[in-house]
Design a binder for these strands. Structure first.
Lengths: 104, 104
DNA sequence: CGGAATCCTAGAAGATACTG
DNA sequence: CAGTATCTTCTAGGATTCCG
């Protein structure tokens, strides 16, 4: 949880599960995130070996982010967490916590 | 992640997946946690509807914690996350992040 | 375009002491 | 036994500005 607990990390991983993304693409895909936070969370994921950063020295600059093999080993967890979160927000949060039934 | 991101929450959930636990049992099962943190994290999990708190008005007092139905809907995620964490710490952390291979 | 540098604040986490 | 009550430290997160 220390590695995944960041405010945006799961959302970032979710994006990268689908494939390589550029910095700007990630920013647009994550409404509300600031440039600084996106950079920081990406660097932390990189330091943990989950994300690989590739810099293309062009003009204008291009930087691509992709999951490493280790990062991809979290794919199923990423997906399950995302699914659970959406279920929880749609089903539990609006109602009473002692209300509806779980999914699976 | 806002619900599960707490420093001890996953560890607490892991304990409760196995069954009902008393406050003191949880404390002993989580070396390093302070009374205050255990109380706080349990209260947050309770507020999110994942954990149920049962007070037995006896002397000495007895308080039991158990997963709710919603809490149990996280069981597989809890287990996978725990498994992945152990694998990562044993396999990746001691070595280079670009070293060994993932499990599954 | 993809950052880095700086400043700031809320709250997460912890240490310690006390209590019904 | 299972908590409160205080106090302190730390840092994650965010706003803003500047840059190659």
């Amino acid at each position: 949880m220390e590695m995944l607990g960041g405010r945006w990390k799961l959302a970032i991983l979710k994006q990268l599960v689908a494939g390589t993304r550029r910095f700007g693409e990630l920013r647009r895909a994550l409404p509300g995130i600031t440039q600084r936070m996106l950079t920081r969370q990406l660097r932390e994921l990189e330091a943990d070996g989950l994300v690989a950063r590739t810099v293309y020295r062009e003009v204008p600059p291009r930087v691509e982010y992709a999951l490493t093999e280790v990062g991809h080993s979290l794919d199923s967890i990423t997906e399950e967490l995302d699914k659970w979160g959406r279920w929880y927000r749609e089903t539990i949060r609006p109602e009473d916590p002692s209300g509806p039934r779980p999914p699976a």
